[in-house]
Design a protein around this nucleic acid. Structure first.
Lengths: 305, 305
DNA sequence: CTAGAGCGTTGCAAAAAACGCAACACTTCC
DNA sequence: GGAAGTGTTGCGTTTTTTGCAACGCTCTAG
């Protein structure tokens, strides 16, 4: 869409923080870019950027405009997607922001299913911590979000949420392995494998531990799920996981999972949704639909509360 | 905003139904306009208009796009309004669609109040029947709506609604004038002054009459409020009115108003609102705020249900 | 305190895009 | 069967945008 090139220019200038740098990535001259910016500011009647010695920065008016621009650009994507959809061809792009807890197993298989059904649809998956999800959505960097225990739900439109009580994971010969459920103080007696504090699982555990006056001792701590997963597979230490990831990582390991008493650690929730007040492109909407349908069927595997 | 001139072009072509006619009102050559259209269709990959012998007509893709365009254009107005608002100047435009019942008295005085406070704000008021209100909003022809008994509430975001029991209006020496409330069958015995069937008042009356097996005899019927108002002032026939218009039209007339038994004719409601999912420009939002505040204070003058 | 690097901005000529004019092919209606 | 309407296209002209170079400015390092 050539005619709203100015929008992309503004977006890039805001991102780069300097006209010259933006001009470089946009492959045009700084002077040309500057003139387009001046023209827009002239039409608008007010400046959009404040000029600093080291570059430019959005002022309040600019922030309002940029929000409009981002909304507008992504809504145009939706329009193109809908138009493509009615000519029979299912094309489009789905951009996903997801918690590190959810990058494995379930989500990849869902993407694969969808992609197999509609090869014309492309995907982008970005790992985001629970506190950063809303930013990815509001900046229109991602269309849909899968979050475990989101930090804020402002501007978040929930489409579905899935109950996820936290489980302990251990070797089959671990002292706790035979129990129906474990208390948190029992776990606290063992050295633990814990995810980083930015994770939702860790957040729930820390919160509960501090409430109960317990001290969780992380022997190994990581923010890389790949690492946690493989480490768990060895079963060296007591670890934690949510049901959606169980029976996936551990098939060959001979590992056992035991739920933590919900009175000790409250259940977490996976939230599926998008930016509030936004109409999603067809592909993204259908993908959410598929995923939530699958999640509903997962509910059957979960014990009742 | 020069850069989204193409949008205005598309809008005008759709409205005119022909490139040549649109070109005329847009003051450019048909060839130039046509080329811009072809360029857009080329960028989009599909045709937006189907070509007829007598002109062009939007196809489905075009309708999706046009909806986007209208939303986009009016959202840009909101942005400009918000930006203007931050520099302290209260400028802007408020476009109102309102039922014929509501064109007099209350609304003009509200507009006058607001306009007196903020002379930089301009107004446009369009009379629309209850069944056409949603169209005016969804086409972004109007920002806000004041409707008596709207026909549909799809895509309508209600900000406030005001209870409005229907009253009989008559001369002070009319046989019914002394009653506390009148039954519909009592009214049906007299020749009536009725508004057009497109009106909300008439809709409520007709519906109730048919339910009660009554036959309302309109001696005089009009869709012009100005006419009804002046005719009522003379008090020749039994007429109907809603409370928001009482004590305004009839101060000098020596007329009397008596509510109709709510068991016979259900109360009507004035709906104040705008298109669902839309953020209004500052001026429009403040105006709605002022009006609803005023309406709340009107409630004190109404007898309890 | 000064030299240099980085920034936004502007004058001017070249390149690109848009435009108006005229003509063509086509359908509909009288 | 012609006239009037439609969308479309080739071509020369006009308008707009761009790139280049230079200017004035602020901040930083030596």
């Amino acid at each position: 869409m050539r005619h709203l090139l100015p929008y992309k220019y503004i977006e890039e200038i805001a991102r780069a923080g300097s006209i010259r740098k933006a001009a470089e990535t946009l492959a045009i001259t700084p002077s040309a870019l500057n003139r387009r910016l001046l023209a827009i500011e002239d039409e608008l009647g007010v400046a959009i950027f404040e000029r600093l010695a080291v570059g430019v920065r959005l002022n309040t008016a600019g922030e309002i405009l940029l929000e409009h621009i981002r909304h507008q650009l992504s809504d145009l994507e939706r329009v193109k997607s809908q138009i493509a959809d009615l000519s029979g061809q299912r094309r489009g792009h789905v951009s996903i922001a997801c918690s590190p807890e959810l990058t494995g197993g379930f989500l990849p298989s869902q993407v694969q299913d969808y992609q197999h059904q509609f090869p014309g649809v492309t995907f982008k998956i970005n790992r985001r911590f629970r506190k950063d999800i809303d930013l990815a959505l509001s900046e229109h960097y991602s269309d849909v979000a899968f979050v475990f225990e989101p930090a804020k739900l402002t501007d978040f439109q929930t489409v579905y949420n899935l109950r996820q009580p936290i489980h302990c994971v251990m070797k089959h010969n671990h002292p706790l392995a035979q129990k129906k459920s474990v208390r948190l103080y029992e776990c606290a007696e063992f050295p633990l494998l814990l995810p980083d504090v930015s994770w939702g699982i860790r957040h729930l555990l820390d919160q509960s531990a501090s409430r109960l006056g317990l001290n969780l001792r992380p022997v190994v701590q990581s923010d890389a799920r790949e690492f946690l997963r493989d480490y768990k597979r060895e079963g060296g230490h007591l670890a934690f996981e949510i049901p959606i990831n169980l029976n996936r990582d551990f098939e060959p390991g001979g590992l056992v999972s035991v739920p933590i008493d919900p009175l000790d650690v409250p259940e977490g929730f996976i939230f599926v949704g998008h930016l509030k007040g936004r109409t999603l492109p067809v592909a993204a909407a259908r993908f959410i639909e598929q995923v939530t349908t699958k999640m509903v069927s997962l509910l059957d595997d979960l014990p009742d509360q």
